[in-house]
Design a protein around this nucleic acid. Structure first.
Lengths: 209, 209, 209, 209
DNA sequence: GATGAATGAGACTTCATTCAT
DNA sequence: GATGAATGAAGTCTCATTCAT
């Protein structure tokens, strides 16, 4: 996550800055939107939600500032889009694993690894998410909705104790964030230890406990 | 040519007008600092870190904007002070309970309730904390330091598996935040259910598991 | 908890109210920049560098405060722009005179008058420059660079003793500033006397001495 | 001269800062005043007029902020005091040399060296002076008065062409400042060259030309 | 659909100066 | 005479958002 605005400015954004992005090819609205979401994801990851601005995102995607607002009502909205895409990718992975793996142990291990990798690759995005859920009503709403979707996914996976599912969800998320952020290492637990616990938590649940 | 503002000001403007706070009493720096911290705590809780500003905090404490900067280098620094005071109060409670309660079960229950109450009373502060730890290096550092202190407190309580302590810390914190934020209720778990689980997690650890 | 300013603004406020300038015409960046530089020149001359602020400059040019920072990184940068334009105009004059006048005596007299007029028209700007060269690294750098350019101009004029050129530059500048500021008058020298000396210094150099 | 605020702040001026100065010994008002002037001189030299503040000066002298205003009406007033002391020291040196040296050549050389040394030791103060003369009416007035005093000193030395005296004053001052600031070096003239010219200017005047 | 110049509220911070003790 | 906590006006700069082309 951002942690620092890096180089905040390099002088007045002379005309130069205009050509920062990947040369926006005039395309369908969907392509434009997708490019903006991708650029925003990278920017949020790298500089944090409060470390970028919508102009920069638009430029990074190869568009002018105004274009951004043709596709998103505001900054929060694109964050939600980024987050939803992120979650969807995570669950795609989980579901593929569930379909493919045999034993609960294998499933748990592979799910844990997939989740961990996904979190480790996007620590900045996760941090911004945690920040924004508390701060931006719109993002909070989207986050809640996403939780509900995830609960449904879990039910579809045959896990039927909603209470346990909820705890699992929070626990996995929290541990994965902690590992990805290196919090546990600082608390004296090796990443491998932490991973083992994460696997255990998942496996326990998969076994219905 | 004029060139200069010459005399910038003519004297402290009548204080009466703008002020909203409890009317600054000239006192010791410590009192002033304490008033600022108290006002900041309330402001962060109520409006969030990004929802207040240092001028507002100063006014709420009964001071002019400049006074704030006599006591804190910046907004982040007062947040750290607020957070540290918050944590200290929480642990004071925990330690009193540990000294007073008999059985692990009683300890666990009373600790859980104390922690929960403390989190429920300050959900906004907690949310801001989560946000800032990801975003502000200074606050991140303070948070880490505080974690270490808490680990020491746990060791002093006789809990000697650092790995388990770390997990306990994160878990309790996370569950308490979730309950306080109402996240669990939305996931279909009653607050009482959640509390029971929280007690269980603590008791399990107290029993050495 | 609230925590966030939510929607910060609702739209550009009615422009009519505060503005004082010539009513911003949407134009090319170059036009805007030129208007800002012109407004800044007048403001620096009239109120001094420390007597204006960037908001005022922007307003005087007919723009909002933010527009200033689209064109200049900070206040120092626009000062440099103003200064460079000022120097360029001075040398344009000198070069025209050199091309046009015959004898060293005529050249010296006309150059002295041109320089004097240029300094007399901008005493405030000159004063601010003297102040800032000592104080602001960026402006110091620009000033040094400008000096080097002026030395080149002198060389192009056929004056080839760099040491003498340097002294001439400083002397002319200093005397012109002193006359423009009225310093000499206060020291008991008539402006005409001072002008005669200025002419002499220049002519001496033009004759190679 | 300051050129940069160096470290602008090191955190809230906790109580620590209070003991920065040399342990103000309670003394006569004159001693207090003298300590303040000395501290201000050093501060102006080191950080520039705009790079220090009156609180810092007072602390550096070993006093509280309020004490400053018991002795000086404002910041400009102490600058004037510092400047006047500086000039007085310079002329003390010049007069001693005139009394001691024989030939115009010797006088010129020794005066030049004394002046140069005095300027080289206080470049920051000189820079601030040049800035403030243009900016602060009170300092401008004091500067003019000081010039008049210096003209009198010159007359007392037997130099009776006021016009030439004025030019000499400005020229010496300007060249000495330029050498002290390294301006001439950057323009391609060695310091020794510059010094030679300075001596020549003075000697020429001493010989009545 | 895209552009990009422009907007303007407002956050953060500084510092010369005062005044009650 | 000295103290030092407090003052508060004001300047610098940012950035989400708009709208005329």
């Amino acid at each position: 996550m951002t942690r620092a605005p890096a180089t905040r400015r390099a002088g007045p954004a002379k005309r130069a800055a205009a050509s920062a992005g990947p040369r926006a090819v005039r395309g369908t609205p969907d392509e434009t939107r997708a490019r903006l979401v991708a650029a925003a994801g990278a920017a949020f990851e790298h500089d944090g939600y409060f470390g970028t601005d919508t102009n920069r995102i638009a430029r990074a995607a190869g568009y002018a500032p105004g274009t951004f607002y043709k596709h998103f009502a505001d900054k929060a909205e694109i964050f939600v889009a980024v987050y939803e895409a992120w979650i969807a990718r995570e669950w795609d992975g989980v579901q593929a694993i569930v379909a493919d793996a045999r034993t609960p142990a294998e499933k748990a291990a592979r799910i844990a690894d997939a989740v961990l990798e996904h979190h480790r690759a996007w620590p900045g995005l996760r941090a911004s998410l945690r920040a924004l859920v508390a701060t931006e009503p719109a993002i909070r709403r989207a986050h809640r909705a996403s939780r509900r979707t995830q609960m449904m996914h879990m039910a579809e996976l045959g896990l039927d104790d909603a209470g346990k599912n909820a705890i699992l969800l929070l626990t996995v998320e929290r541990i994965a964030d902690a590992i990805a952020d290196g919090e546990l290492r600082e608390l004296g637990m090796s990443d491998e230890d932490a991973r083992v616990r994460l696997v255990a938590v998942i496996e326990e649940r998969l076994r219905g406990r």
